[in-house]
Design a protein around this nucleic acid. Sequence first.
DNA 1: GTGTATGCAAAACATTTGCAGGATG
DNA 2: CATCCTGCAAATGTTTTGCATACAC
Lengths: 145, 145
Amino acid sequence: MQTFDEIVTLMSARGLRVTDQRKTLAKLFSEAIGYLSPKDVYDHMGKTYSGLSFDTVYRNLRVMEELGVLEQVMFEEGVKFKIHCRENDHHHHMICLGCGKTYPIKFCPMDQTNVPTDFKVIRHKFEVFGHCKACAEEEQVQGGE
Amino acid sequence: MQTFDEIVTLMSARGLRVTDQRKTLAKLFSEAIGYLSPKDVYDHMGKTYSGLSFDTVYRNLRVMEELGVLEQVMFEEGVKFKIHCRENDHHHHMICLGCGKTYPIKFCPMDQTNVPTDFKVIRHKFEVFGHCKACAEEEQVQGGE
DNA sequence: GTGTATGCAAAACATTTGCAGGATG
DNA sequence: CATCCTGCAAATGTTTTGCATACAC
Protein backbone atom coordinates (compact mmCIF):
# COMPACT_ATOMS: atom_id res chain seq x y z
CA MET A 1 0.00 0.00 0.00
CA GLN A 2 1.33 3.39 -0.91
CA THR A 3 0.56 6.25 1.36
CA PHE A 4 -1.10 9.48 0.39
CA ASP A 5 2.14 11.39 0.89
CA GLU A 6 4.15 9.06 -1.30
CA ILE A 7 1.67 9.42 -4.13
CA VAL A 8 1.62 13.20 -3.87
CA THR A 9 5.40 13.34 -3.78
CA LEU A 10 5.62 11.12 -6.83
CA MET A 11 3.14 13.24 -8.76
CA SER A 12 5.04 16.34 -7.88
CA ALA A 13 8.36 14.79 -8.86
CA ARG A 14 6.97 13.94 -12.27
CA GLY A 15 5.98 17.53 -12.82
CA LEU A 16 2.27 16.84 -12.44
CA ARG A 17 0.15 19.37 -10.64
CA VAL A 18 -1.20 18.42 -7.29
CA THR A 19 -4.79 19.53 -7.57
CA ASP A 20 -7.58 19.01 -5.06
CA GLN A 21 -9.09 16.35 -7.28
CA ARG A 22 -5.86 14.43 -7.46
CA LYS A 23 -5.30 14.74 -3.73
CA THR A 24 -8.78 13.43 -3.10
CA LEU A 25 -8.16 10.57 -5.51
CA ALA A 26 -4.83 9.74 -3.88
CA LYS A 27 -6.42 9.80 -0.45
CA LEU A 28 -9.28 7.58 -1.59
CA PHE A 29 -7.02 4.91 -3.05
CA SER A 30 -4.47 5.03 -0.27
CA GLU A 31 -7.26 4.27 2.19
CA ALA A 32 -9.44 2.05 0.01
CA ILE A 33 -9.62 -1.60 0.91
CA GLY A 34 -10.41 -3.24 -2.40
CA TYR A 35 -10.94 -2.56 -6.07
CA LEU A 36 -12.91 0.50 -7.14
CA SER A 37 -14.74 1.06 -10.40
CA PRO A 38 -14.66 4.48 -12.04
CA LYS A 39 -18.21 4.94 -10.78
CA ASP A 40 -17.20 4.03 -7.23
CA VAL A 41 -14.45 6.59 -7.46
CA TYR A 42 -16.80 9.21 -8.79
CA ASP A 43 -19.31 8.55 -6.04
CA HIS A 44 -16.77 8.49 -3.22
CA MET A 45 -15.06 11.61 -4.50
CA GLY A 46 -18.36 13.35 -4.96
CA LYS A 47 -18.82 13.28 -1.20
CA THR A 48 -15.61 15.18 -0.59
CA TYR A 49 -15.64 17.23 -3.70
CA SER A 50 -18.89 18.42 -5.17
CA GLY A 51 -19.01 19.62 -8.74
CA LEU A 52 -16.70 16.86 -9.82
CA SER A 53 -16.94 15.58 -13.35
CA PHE A 54 -16.64 12.04 -14.65
CA ASP A 55 -14.07 12.87 -17.27
CA THR A 56 -11.69 14.19 -14.63
CA VAL A 57 -12.05 10.90 -12.79
CA TYR A 58 -11.21 8.95 -15.94
CA ARG A 59 -8.36 11.24 -16.85
CA ASN A 60 -6.79 11.00 -13.44
CA LEU A 61 -7.28 7.29 -13.16
CA ARG A 62 -5.30 6.98 -16.35
CA VAL A 63 -2.66 9.43 -15.15
CA MET A 64 -2.21 7.49 -11.94
CA GLU A 65 -2.06 4.24 -13.78
CA GLU A 66 0.69 5.57 -16.01
CA LEU A 67 2.44 6.83 -12.90
CA GLY A 68 2.43 3.27 -11.64
CA VAL A 69 0.38 4.21 -8.60
CA LEU A 70 -2.74 2.35 -9.66
CA GLU A 71 -3.28 -0.94 -11.40
CA GLN A 72 -6.24 -1.73 -13.61
CA VAL A 73 -7.96 -5.09 -13.61
CA MET A 74 -10.82 -6.30 -15.78
CA PHE A 75 -13.62 -8.10 -13.94
CA GLU A 76 -16.87 -9.51 -15.23
CA GLU A 77 -18.55 -6.30 -14.10
CA GLY A 78 -16.01 -4.11 -15.86
CA VAL A 79 -12.79 -2.25 -15.19
CA LYS A 80 -11.65 -1.64 -11.63
CA PHE A 81 -8.66 -0.01 -10.02
CA LYS A 82 -6.62 -0.37 -6.90
CA ILE A 83 -3.31 0.81 -5.50
CA HIS A 84 -0.48 -1.00 -7.26
CA CYS A 85 0.87 -3.91 -5.27
CA ARG A 86 4.14 -3.23 -3.59
CA GLU A 87 5.21 -6.80 -3.07
CA ASN A 88 8.40 -7.03 -5.01
CA ASP A 89 7.99 -10.73 -5.75
CA HIS A 90 5.52 -12.14 -8.21
CA HIS A 91 2.22 -13.13 -6.64
CA HIS A 92 -1.51 -13.54 -7.22
CA HIS A 93 -4.65 -12.57 -5.33
CA MET A 94 -7.57 -13.86 -3.39
CA ILE A 95 -10.32 -11.30 -3.81
CA CYS A 96 -13.32 -10.94 -1.52
CA LEU A 97 -16.55 -10.62 -3.49
CA GLY A 98 -18.11 -8.82 -0.54
CA CYS A 99 -15.71 -6.03 0.34
CA GLY A 100 -13.21 -6.34 -2.48
CA LYS A 101 -10.29 -6.75 -0.11
CA THR A 102 -7.37 -8.69 -1.57
CA TYR A 103 -4.99 -11.16 -0.03
CA PRO A 104 -1.73 -12.20 -1.67
CA ILE A 105 -1.12 -15.73 -2.87
CA LYS A 106 2.57 -16.48 -2.99
CA PHE A 107 2.09 -19.65 -5.00
CA CYS A 108 2.28 -19.24 -8.77
CA PRO A 109 0.61 -21.98 -10.81
CA MET A 110 2.92 -21.45 -13.76
CA ASP A 111 5.63 -23.41 -11.97
CA GLN A 112 3.35 -26.44 -11.94
CA THR A 113 1.80 -25.98 -15.35
CA ASN A 114 2.96 -28.24 -18.10
CA VAL A 115 3.21 -25.94 -21.10
CA PRO A 116 4.03 -27.50 -24.48
CA THR A 117 7.39 -26.34 -25.78
CA ASP A 118 5.80 -24.83 -28.87
CA PHE A 119 3.52 -22.51 -26.90
CA LYS A 120 5.28 -19.26 -26.01
CA VAL A 121 3.80 -17.99 -22.75
CA ILE A 122 3.51 -14.22 -22.51
CA ARG A 123 1.37 -13.64 -19.45
CA HIS A 124 -0.99 -15.37 -17.12
CA LYS A 125 -3.82 -14.65 -14.74
CA PHE A 126 -4.71 -16.46 -11.55
CA GLU A 127 -7.41 -15.12 -9.25
CA VAL A 128 -9.38 -16.69 -6.46
CA PHE A 129 -12.75 -15.18 -5.59
CA GLY A 130 -14.73 -15.77 -2.42
CA HIS A 131 -15.70 -14.23 0.87
CA CYS A 132 -13.37 -13.13 3.62
CA LYS A 133 -14.16 -14.03 7.23
CA ALA A 134 -16.17 -10.88 7.92
CA CYS A 135 -18.17 -11.01 4.67
CA ALA A 136 -18.79 -14.75 5.01
CA GLU A 137 -20.29 -14.19 8.46
CA GLU A 138 -22.46 -11.39 7.16
CA GLU A 139 -23.72 -13.65 4.36
CA GLN A 140 -24.62 -16.29 6.90
CA VAL A 141 -26.55 -13.85 9.10
CA GLN A 142 -28.52 -12.60 6.12
CA GLY A 143 -29.25 -16.16 5.09
CA GLY A 144 -27.72 -15.66 1.68
CA GLU A 145 -26.97 -18.72 -0.45
CA MET B 1 -16.80 -28.52 -29.55
CA GLN B 2 -20.45 -28.72 -30.32
CA THR B 3 -21.50 -29.23 -33.88
CA PHE B 4 -23.86 -27.05 -35.82
CA ASP B 5 -26.50 -29.79 -35.82
CA GLU B 6 -26.34 -30.28 -32.08
CA ILE B 7 -26.85 -26.58 -31.48
CA VAL B 8 -29.80 -26.39 -33.84
CA THR B 9 -31.38 -29.46 -32.30
CA LEU B 10 -30.95 -28.00 -28.84
CA MET B 11 -32.50 -24.69 -29.86
CA SER B 12 -35.40 -26.49 -31.40
CA ALA B 13 -35.89 -28.71 -28.36
CA ARG B 14 -36.10 -25.65 -26.16
CA GLY B 15 -38.87 -24.20 -28.28
CA LEU B 16 -36.66 -21.54 -29.81
CA ARG B 17 -37.12 -20.69 -33.43
CA VAL B 18 -34.36 -21.68 -35.79
CA THR B 19 -33.95 -18.56 -37.85
CA ASP B 20 -31.35 -17.88 -40.51
CA GLN B 21 -29.54 -15.54 -38.15
CA ARG B 22 -29.35 -18.20 -35.46
CA LYS B 23 -28.22 -20.80 -37.92
CA THR B 24 -25.49 -18.50 -39.15
CA LEU B 25 -24.46 -17.80 -35.57
CA ALA B 26 -24.42 -21.51 -34.73
CA LYS B 27 -22.35 -22.26 -37.81
CA LEU B 28 -19.92 -19.48 -37.05
CA PHE B 29 -19.26 -20.63 -33.50
CA SER B 30 -19.18 -24.31 -34.30
CA GLU B 31 -16.40 -23.59 -36.79
CA ALA B 32 -14.67 -20.73 -35.00
CA ILE B 33 -11.25 -21.42 -33.59
CA GLY B 34 -11.03 -18.96 -30.74
CA TYR B 35 -12.93 -16.31 -28.86
CA LEU B 36 -15.08 -13.84 -30.77
CA SER B 37 -16.18 -10.40 -29.68
CA PRO B 38 -19.71 -9.20 -30.49
CA LYS B 39 -18.13 -7.07 -33.20
CA ASP B 40 -16.28 -10.05 -34.65
CA VAL B 41 -19.55 -11.92 -34.75
CA TYR B 42 -21.33 -9.04 -36.40
CA ASP B 43 -18.60 -8.69 -39.01
CA HIS B 44 -18.37 -12.42 -39.78
CA MET B 45 -22.12 -12.77 -39.94
CA GLY B 46 -22.43 -9.71 -42.09
CA LYS B 47 -20.59 -11.59 -44.85
CA THR B 48 -23.15 -14.36 -44.94
CA TYR B 49 -26.13 -12.33 -44.01
CA SER B 50 -26.41 -8.74 -45.14
CA GLY B 51 -28.83 -6.40 -43.45
CA LEU B 52 -28.01 -7.87 -40.08
CA SER B 53 -28.42 -5.71 -37.01
CA PHE B 54 -26.21 -5.46 -33.96
CA ASP B 55 -29.03 -5.93 -31.51
CA THR B 56 -29.89 -9.30 -33.02
CA VAL B 57 -26.30 -10.35 -32.53
CA TYR B 58 -26.39 -9.33 -28.87
CA ARG B 59 -29.79 -10.89 -28.30
CA ASN B 60 -28.75 -14.18 -29.80
CA LEU B 61 -25.41 -14.24 -28.06
CA ARG B 62 -27.31 -13.98 -24.82
CA VAL B 63 -29.85 -16.59 -25.89
CA MET B 64 -27.09 -19.02 -26.76
CA GLU B 65 -25.27 -18.30 -23.56
CA GLU B 66 -28.41 -19.08 -21.57
CA LEU B 67 -28.79 -22.23 -23.65
CA GLY B 68 -25.37 -23.23 -22.46
CA VAL B 69 -24.00 -23.33 -25.99
CA LEU B 70 -21.71 -20.35 -25.58
CA GLU B 71 -19.56 -19.15 -22.76
CA GLN B 72 -18.71 -15.56 -22.10
CA VAL B 73 -15.30 -14.43 -20.90
CA MET B 74 -14.12 -10.96 -20.01
CA PHE B 75 -10.77 -9.94 -21.44
CA GLU B 76 -8.88 -6.69 -21.18
CA GLU B 77 -10.30 -5.75 -24.57
CA GLY B 78 -13.86 -6.55 -23.54
CA VAL B 79 -16.36 -9.38 -23.64
CA LYS B 80 -15.77 -12.36 -25.90
CA PHE B 81 -17.60 -15.59 -26.62
CA LYS B 82 -16.79 -19.11 -27.63
CA ILE B 83 -18.47 -22.49 -27.78
CA HIS B 84 -18.88 -23.88 -24.29
CA CYS B 85 -16.22 -26.40 -23.38
CA ARG B 86 -17.38 -29.95 -23.46
CA GLU B 87 -14.66 -31.45 -21.34
CA ASN B 88 -16.56 -32.95 -18.49
CA ASP B 89 -13.74 -32.49 -16.03
CA HIS B 90 -12.69 -29.18 -14.59
CA HIS B 91 -9.89 -27.53 -16.52
CA HIS B 92 -8.33 -24.22 -17.51
CA HIS B 93 -7.03 -22.69 -20.74
CA MET B 94 -4.00 -21.59 -22.59
CA ILE B 95 -5.14 -18.92 -25.01
CA CYS B 96 -3.24 -17.85 -28.10
CA LEU B 97 -3.06 -14.06 -28.35
CA GLY B 98 -2.63 -14.38 -32.11
CA CYS B 99 -5.44 -16.60 -33.28
CA GLY B 100 -7.44 -16.98 -30.07
CA LYS B 101 -7.26 -20.74 -30.17
CA THR B 102 -7.47 -22.39 -26.77
CA TYR B 103 -5.76 -25.43 -25.33
CA PRO B 104 -6.93 -27.16 -22.18
CA ILE B 105 -4.83 -27.25 -19.03
CA LYS B 106 -5.76 -30.21 -16.90
CA PHE B 107 -3.88 -28.93 -13.88
CA CYS B 108 -5.93 -26.82 -11.46
CA PRO B 109 -3.94 -24.51 -9.20
CA MET B 110 -6.59 -24.60 -6.49
CA ASP B 111 -5.29 -27.98 -5.38
CA GLN B 112 -1.93 -26.41 -4.62
CA THR B 113 -3.18 -23.12 -3.24
CA ASN B 114 -3.04 -22.64 0.47
CA VAL B 115 -6.33 -20.90 1.25
CA PRO B 116 -6.87 -19.74 4.85
CA THR B 117 -9.74 -21.60 6.51
CA ASP B 118 -11.68 -18.38 7.05
CA PHE B 119 -11.75 -17.50 3.34
CA LYS B 120 -14.67 -19.16 1.58
CA VAL B 121 -13.67 -19.78 -2.02
CA ILE B 122 -16.48 -19.36 -4.54
CA ARG B 123 -14.76 -19.38 -7.89
CA HIS B 124 -11.37 -18.96 -9.48
CA LYS B 125 -9.77 -18.01 -12.75
CA PHE B 126 -6.57 -19.31 -14.26
CA GLU B 127 -5.59 -18.39 -17.78
CA VAL B 128 -2.32 -18.57 -19.65
CA PHE B 129 -1.81 -16.24 -22.60
CA GLY B 130 0.81 -16.57 -25.27
CA HIS B 131 1.40 -17.61 -28.85
CA CYS B 132 0.77 -21.01 -30.35
CA LYS B 133 3.36 -22.58 -32.64
CA ALA B 134 1.93 -21.11 -35.84
CA CYS B 135 1.43 -17.62 -34.43
CA ALA B 136 4.84 -17.61 -32.76
CA GLU B 137 6.48 -18.42 -36.10
CA GLU B 138 4.53 -15.68 -37.79
CA GLU B 139 5.67 -13.21 -35.13
CA GLN B 140 9.26 -14.22 -35.74
CA VAL B 141 9.00 -13.82 -39.51
CA GLN B 142 7.51 -10.38 -39.13
CA GLY B 143 10.30 -9.42 -36.78
CA GLY B 144 7.93 -8.70 -33.91
CA GLU B 145 9.39 -8.14 -30.45
C1' DG C 1 -52.68 -18.05 -37.99
C1' DT C 2 -50.07 -17.24 -33.68
C1' DG C 3 -46.44 -15.84 -31.39
C1' DT C 4 -41.56 -15.25 -31.48
C1' DA C 5 -37.50 -13.01 -33.75
C1' DT C 6 -35.87 -9.35 -36.41
C1' DG C 7 -34.60 -4.62 -37.83
C1' DC C 8 -34.94 -0.04 -37.02
C1' DA C 9 -34.56 3.72 -34.09
C1' DA C 10 -33.75 5.53 -29.96
C1' DA C 11 -32.36 5.07 -25.26
C1' DA C 12 -29.08 3.95 -21.71
C1' DC C 13 -24.58 3.53 -20.30
C1' DA C 14 -19.45 3.88 -20.41
C1' DT C 15 -15.58 6.31 -21.98
C1' DT C 16 -13.09 9.89 -24.68
C1' DT C 17 -12.20 14.41 -26.64
C1' DG C 18 -12.25 19.69 -27.70
C1' DC C 19 -12.34 23.84 -25.76
C1' DA C 20 -12.61 27.94 -22.71
C1' DG C 21 -11.96 29.29 -18.17
C1' DG C 22 -9.62 28.47 -13.68
C1' DA C 23 -6.05 26.84 -10.57
C1' DT C 24 -1.19 25.48 -9.85
C1' DG C 25 3.66 26.12 -9.59
C1' DC D 1 1.88 34.45 -15.63
C1' DA D 2 2.49 30.39 -18.42
C1' DT D 3 0.86 26.07 -18.39
C1' DC D 4 -1.59 22.32 -16.96
C1' DC D 5 -6.06 20.74 -15.13
C1' DT D 6 -10.88 20.99 -14.82
C1' DG D 7 -15.73 21.11 -16.12
C1' DC D 8 -18.89 21.38 -19.54
C1' DA D 9 -20.71 19.64 -23.58
C1' DA D 10 -20.59 16.84 -27.19
C1' DA D 11 -18.71 12.85 -29.58
C1' DT D 12 -17.79 7.95 -29.67
C1' DG D 13 -18.51 3.19 -28.66
C1' DT D 14 -21.09 -0.49 -26.54
C1' DT D 15 -25.14 -2.69 -25.10
C1' DT D 16 -30.18 -2.57 -24.23
C1' DT D 17 -35.04 -1.67 -25.16
C1' DG D 18 -39.72 -0.53 -27.56
C1' DC D 19 -42.26 -1.31 -31.31
C1' DA D 20 -44.10 -2.64 -35.92
C1' DT D 21 -43.18 -5.98 -39.36
C1' DA D 22 -41.62 -10.47 -40.98
C1' DC D 23 -40.89 -15.19 -40.40
C1' DA D 24 -40.93 -20.00 -38.19
C1' DC D 25 -43.76 -23.38 -36.58
